[in-house]
Amino acid sequence: MTPLLSVKDLQVTFVTPDRTIHAVNGVSFDVKRGETLGILGESGSGKSVTLRSILKLHPAHRTRWSGSIALEGDEVLTMEGRALANLRGRRVSMIFQEPATAFDPVFTIGQQITESVRRHTGKSEAEAMKRAKDLLEMVRIPSPAQRLAAYPHEMSGGMRQRAMIALALSCDPSLLLADEPTTALDATVQIQVLLLIRELQRELDLGVIFVTHDIGVAVEVSDRVGVMYAGKLVELAGVEQMADAPRHPYSRGLLASTVHDGMRGQRLEAIPGAPPDLGEVPAACSFAPRCKSVEPRCLAAPPPLKPVDDSHFVRCVVAA
């Protein structure tokens, strides 16, 4: 059975007159229907670039894509114009990090949901309004009929993000992309939104890719977790394996640098150094300069992604 989404050896390069940035350097993963893949990484690791590439949201004249992104067998990277627009919001939709800026401030929530519904389903204005109201109800926004007439600035952050989820789900997509959807929210609202996403995902049998830099969030929502570093997946594993027995030194470092139970009085570990400059394609393990267990062979060639078992992969010659 073909997976819902299959990404193979994705490479993304941004070319400007001044410099070239190799943002993503060979990322491969699959997402099944009804599965949530969490992608964990720090700023600049290429996680958001990978996510946005699935909708080809980067400006075409400055971006070079190679590899393959197949949605239910259809290649996305070669899509353009109308075919691409028909995919966006219909089969694959996206929740943005900051709902305050991802909604157009001068249109009402209702207008923005119905325009999407009408674009993809050809429903009438009245039918689309009805659909929008049902959607707001589904994401548990109180008094949905009034909220349809509200402008984004008239809603709270949590409410806006719920509306954003409603918008993303408006045309029954099969894949939902979430780009740090809880980062801009208060801690209490974060949990509510996470639970809502997980619940809707189960209910609608969605594939979800959830990008975050917050390990707690990744563990909370994901079935599998991929860790990205310097434009590559360095480890991919089921959520329990990743939480209990991470293999890659970077994953271990990330986990060690978070606060969890029984840590009072202990010193919090940090990973020394900073991520590499992505101006060139790395010729060795990108993490080697910061790695505690670095060996000479780490610097000889970029390490391949090796299986630890049939659902756990790690890109490290020392750990594998």
Partner: peptide, 20 residues
């Protein structure tokens, strides 16, 4: 602004985005 990207992400055509 981010909402322009968001409009592209929901499949709006260029004319509709220009209106926004």
């Amino acid at each position: 602004m981010e909402f322009v990207t968001a409009l592209q992400a929901k499949g709006m055509n260029d004319g509709r985005i220009l209106l926004h």
